[in-house]
C-alpha cells in the first residue's frame, strides 16, 4: 500500500518536473530566438535576411562593412576605459559610504541616507542639463571622466552594500578590532570579503548598464577619442533610407560580443552571486 502511494507521488513529481523543464526550455528558446536571428542575418548576404534557406551562402562581409562604418577599435577602447573607471570608482565610493552608513553613528545619518536614497527615484536624464553645466564648469566636457562622473556615487550601490554590511555579525567586527585592526583594515579584511557575491552581481549590472548607455555619453562627448561603442552603433540607424538589417546585426553582435562571452564564461559565478545578493 505504502509502496504504491510512494510511486504515485514519484510519478506525479516526475510529471511536474518534466513540465517544468519543458517550460524552461520553451522560455529559453523564446529568449534566444532574437539572438539566433541576429546571428543568421549577420552571417548571410542581405538577400537572405527574411528568407530561411539552410544552405544559403555564408559571408563575413557584413562584419567587415560594420567594422569599417565607424572607428570601432577606438570605440571599444573608450568603452573599456569608461566602464573600468566607473566600476572602480563606484566600488570605492559605495564601499566607503556603505560602511559609514552601516557601522558608524553620526549626527544626521538618517537624513543623509534618505538623501542618498532619493537619488534612486530620479532618472539621470532629468538632470542632464544641470550635469552638463557642472561638467563644463569643471572643464571636463568631452572626456571619459565626464561620461562616468554622474554615475560614480551610485545610490543603488551604496544601498545594496549597506544592506549586506548590516548582515555581517558584529562579533566578527569586534574580534578583528580586538586583534588590533583599524577601521579600514576591518572593512577590507572582514566586510569586503564577505560581500564578494554582492560586488560581482552589482558589477555585472553596472557594466551592462554602462555598456549600453547612449544618451549621456552622446551628449557630453564630441570626439572619436572619447566616445563609446553605442555612439558608433547609431551610425546604422538610418531612417531616411531602408535599414540594412544584416549590417546592423553584425555590428550589434560585434559590440555586444565581449559582454556575451564574458557572461557565458563566468555564468556559474554570476548566477550564484545573483542568488546570494538577491538582485534579479
Amino acid at each position: 500500500m505504502s509502496a504504491m502511494t510512494l510511486s504515485h507521488h514519484a510519478r506525479e513529481a516526475s510529471f511536474w518536473r518534466v513540465l517544468e523543464t519543458g517550460a524552461c526550455y520553451l522560455l529559453g528558446l523564446l529568449w534566444i530566438l532574437p539572438l539566433f536571428y541576429a546571428v543568421w542575418m549577420a552571417v548571410h548576404p542581405p538577400a537572405y535576411e527574411v528568407r530561411f534557406e539552410l544552405l544559403a551562402p555564408l559571408t563575413l562581409q557584413n562584419f567587415v562593412d560594420a567594422w569599417n562604418a565607424a572607428p570601432f577599435a577606438r570605440y571599444f577602447l573608450n568603452t573599456f576605459a569608461l566602464i573600468t573607471t566607473i566600476l572602480v570608482c563606484q566600488f570605492v565610493v559605495c564601499t566607503l559610504a556603505a560602511y559609514a552608513f552601516a557601522r558608524y553613528e553620526f549626527p544626521g545619518k538618517t537624513v543623509v541616507f534618505m538623501l542618498v536614497l532619493i537619488q534612486l527615484m530620479i532618472m539621470p536624464e532629468v538632470l542632464m542639463v544641470e550635469n552638463y553645466r557642472t561638467i563644463s564648469r569643471l572643464g571636463l566636457v568631452d572626456t571619459v571622466l565626464a561620461m562616468g562622473l554622474p554615475y560614480m556615487a551610485s545610490a543603488f550601490g551604496i544601498f545594496l552594500l549597506r544592506q549586506t554590511f548590516l548582515t555581517v555579525p558584529k562579533e566578527l567586527d569586534d574580534a578583528a578590532r580586538v586583534e588590533g585592526a583599524g577601521p579600514l583594515a576591518v572593512l577590507l579584511k572582514v566586510y569586503v570579503p564577505l560581500a564578494r557575491p554582492v560586488y560581482v552581481a552589482y558589477g555585472l549590472v553596472s557594466v551592462s548598464y554602462h555598456w549600453n548607455n547612449l544618451l549621456w555619453p552622446l551628449v557630453i562627448t564630441n570626439s572619436v577619442t572619447t566616445r563609446p561603442l553605442t555612439v558608433g552603433l547609431q551610425v546604422f540607424a538610418s531612417p531616411d533610407q531602408g535599414v540594412q538589417w544584416s549590417v546592423i546585426s553584425a555590428a550589434t553582435l560585434m559590440t555586444s560580443a565581449p559582454l556575451l562571452i564574458g557572461f557565458l564564461l563566468f555564468q556559474r559565478q554570476f548566477v550564484q552571486s545573483f542568488m546570494r545578493a538577491g538582485i534579479k
Binding site: V129, Y132, R133, S136, L215, V219
Partner: peptide, 19 residues
Amino acid sequence: SGTYPETISKALTAYRAGQ
C-alpha cells in the same frame, strides 16, 4: 551627433548649459 532627435537633445542641452 546621432539621429535627428538625439542631435536636437544634444544641441539644446549644450545650449542650456551655456556651451
